[in-house]
Write a protein that binds this DNA or RNA. Structure first.
Length: 569
RNA sequence: CGGGGCGUAGCGUAGCCUGGUAGCGCGCUUGUUUCGGGUACAAGAGGUCGUGAGUUCGAAUCUCACCGCCCCGACCA
């Protein structure tokens, strides 16, 4: 490609809309342009990089035995009603109407479609295992699009769906995808960690997320350097010790705490009750009914875990007046002592705890010497707390670390939720009808592209790995006059590299060297071949790896040296 | 949806408080110049000041509504 003939609208200044490095660079390097919030046009250069990511995904999916197909983005709502997600996923569903006023949905994902397909086409265990995938545009009515391609209303996803006859076979399918994902991200030059993840509204049994560590990530992962344990904080646990039983078992004592409505205030003079000796009482409305949630004072509620404990995601914190109606006190003075008319969910850490302090359900009063079991009857015990950095790893006891990360891939073992709802049944060896066991596997392709930039850039611009760079080599002649020796040499190298199948762009613009160098570094081509009059007079050409030191080679050895660098990756 | 911020030329912005000529830098066009790190000089083109209503002799500026964008939040009693 000739620079002068394509469109690479680089920007010297950062558009005001961009906040994080990768978003700024997407715009400054001329890869994408925003149409409106959450919707982007891929310009020629950005599209080339995107296609390379897609191709890596495609190759690895094919290698893993998955079959590519393409499903409609526009979908009938009735299959969403059958799966129950017309309701449960209604917040993200885009809906449109045709001229007959009939409603359609724009697919945020394709479990319903693929399961409908399989229900019709696969009837026997002999036809399995099968794994279908597509690379396609998804539509999600995101609550807040953010950070360019990171969270958009429309984005490109690779989604795959496996169908197996037995649990063991499904396990194998899951493992294949897990391994394929590791290879995909590695080939994209990304450092990822696979973490145990919550299954959320997708349903299903267990899952892993592939995370790119980044300060700008929207997720948090807890991990252990010592043993390799890693989990999304929504799922992570720790081996925090239960509060010790405490020596004495004095009677519960009510004491005045005027104006004290926070854990912190109670932990200070004159009360001096350490946060870990306090019981935090939260009131939620689950399916519209109040429930109490008890945590140690220094712990925080993990709502993903609460979803599991309650068996529903339909809950919210109660408002102050709702709390007063339920307990007769306001937030800050709440407790579960003597509560029998409301369900009580308590975090495991509190089991058997004694000598605790909690609210008295009377504004301005707390209770001390409270013992769980004696004074508080918790009907439900569960792991409900959010892990905190420094807590002991649940596997090996070493301190956990917590880091923000970008989720680029997610593998789920789904089970039979969709196959049952949409009748994807088959006959097993014994002639018995069974629902297929499903897995689903997603990669945010556009997000992966941005994650590469987020993880690989410097002050001058993007540093593309060769595998996903829009062009591998940028030839930079410092004199663009067609008849100049510099340009003729540049053309010759351009032709030879092109003949060898290298993706190469030649900067044939008649701009000054500084402009070309800056642009080439901003866009981040892995290898720049610089040809100037001075060095060429000595028979030399410069090769500058984007992330490495300048190499001077004899002009006639340029192509060989470039090929060598590409081989090395 | 709640809170905050911002909408002035393709991009970045000043002007707004205190109403009266829309200004600067980058980019773009033309010419000269320069020719290894976003050259220099000169001359230009380009603006419904987000939209609409109101106040006023007069609105980018004041008021109201709406639209759009960005950030934080939408759990932690």
């Amino acid at each position: 490609m000739r620079w002068s003939q394509t469109l690479i609208p680089t920007l010297k200044e950062t558009p005001a809309e961009a906040e994080i490095a990768s978003h700024k660079l997407l715009l400054r390097a001329g890869l994408v342009r925003k149409l409106t919030g959450g919707l982007y046009t891929f310009l020629p250069l950005g599209l080339r990089a995107l296609r390379k990511v897609e191709q890596i995904v495609r190759e690895e999916m094919n290698r893993a035995g998955a079959l590519e197909l393409l499903m409609p983005a526009l979908q009938p709502p009735d299959i969403w009603q059958q799966s129950g997600r017309y309701e449960s996923a209604k917040d993200v569903l885009f809906k449109v109407r045709d001229r007959a006023k009939k409603e359609w949905v724009l697919g945020p994902t394709h479990e319903e479609v693929i399961t409908t397909l399989v229900a019709g086409e696969i009837n026997s265990y002999r036809q399995m295992p099968k794994n279908f995938y597509q690379i396609q545009t998804k539509f999600r009515d995101e609550i807040r699009p953010r950070f360019g391609l990171m969270r958009a209303k429309e984005f490109i996803m690779k989604d795959a769906y496996s169908f197996d006859a037995t649990d063991e076979a499904a396990q194998v399918s899951y493992r294949k995808m897990y391994d394929a994902y590791a290879r995909i991200f590695q080939r994209c030059g990304l450092k990822t960690i696979a973490v145990e993840a919550d299954t959320g509204v997708m349903g299903g049994k267990f899952s892993h997320e592939f995370m790119v560590p980044a300060a700008t990530g929207e997720n948090e992962v807890a991990f252990c350097d010592a043993c390799g344990y890693a989990a999304n904080v929504e799922k992570a646990t720790s081996a925090v010790q239960r509060s010790e039983v405490g020596g004495q078992r004095s009677e519960v004592e009510k004491f005045a705490t005027p104006g004290v409505v926070t854990i912190e205030a109670l932990s200070k003079a004159p009360y001096d009750v350490a946060a870990e000796r306090q019981i935090k009482t939260l009131v939620y409305l689950a399916e519209g009914k109040p429930v109490l949630i008890l945590l140690r004072g220094d712990h925080q509620l993990n709502e993903a875990k609460l979803t599991g404990a309650l068996g529903t995601g339909n809950f919210r914190p109660a408002a102050a007046e709702e709390i007063f109606a339920a307990l007769g006190a306001h937030p800050g003075s709440l407790g579960a002592v003597g509560i029998t008319h409301l369900p009580v969910y308590a975090d495991e850490v509190l089991r058997d705890a004694a000598d605790m302090t909690t609210g008295a359900n009377a504004d301005g009063f707390h209770l001390r010497n409270v013992a769980i079991g004696r004074d508080i009857q918790a009907a439900h015990w569960a792991d409900l707390r959010l892990v905190q950095a420094g807590e002991p790893c649940p596997k090996c006891g070493q301190p956990l670390k917590i880091q923000r990360a970008i989720e680029v891939g997610h593998v789920f073992k789904l089970g039979t939720k969709y196959s049952q709802a949409l009748n994807a049944l088959f006959l097993d060896e014994a002639g018995k009808q069974q629902p297929a066991i499903m897995g689903c596997y997603g990669i945010g392709v556009t997000r992966t592209l941005q994650a590469v930039i987020e993880q690989s850039h410097d002050d001058n611009g993007i540093i593309w790995p060769i595998s996903v760079a829009p062009y591998t080599v940028c030839i930079t002649p410092l004199n663009a006059a067609p008849e100049s020796a510099v340009m003729q040499r540049a053309e010759q190298i351009y032709a030879e590299l092109t003949a060898r199948g290298v993706d190469v762009i030649i900067d044939d613009r008649s701009d000054r060297p500084g402009v070309k160098f800056k642009d080439s570094e901003l866009v981040g081509f892995p290898i720049r071949v610089g040809i100037g009059e001075k060095s060429l007079a000595k028979g030399e050409v410069e090769i500058k790896p984007r992330a490495g030191a300048l190499i001077l080679v004899k002009a006639e050895e340029t192509v060989a040296k470039v090929m060598e660098l590409i081989q090395q990756g």
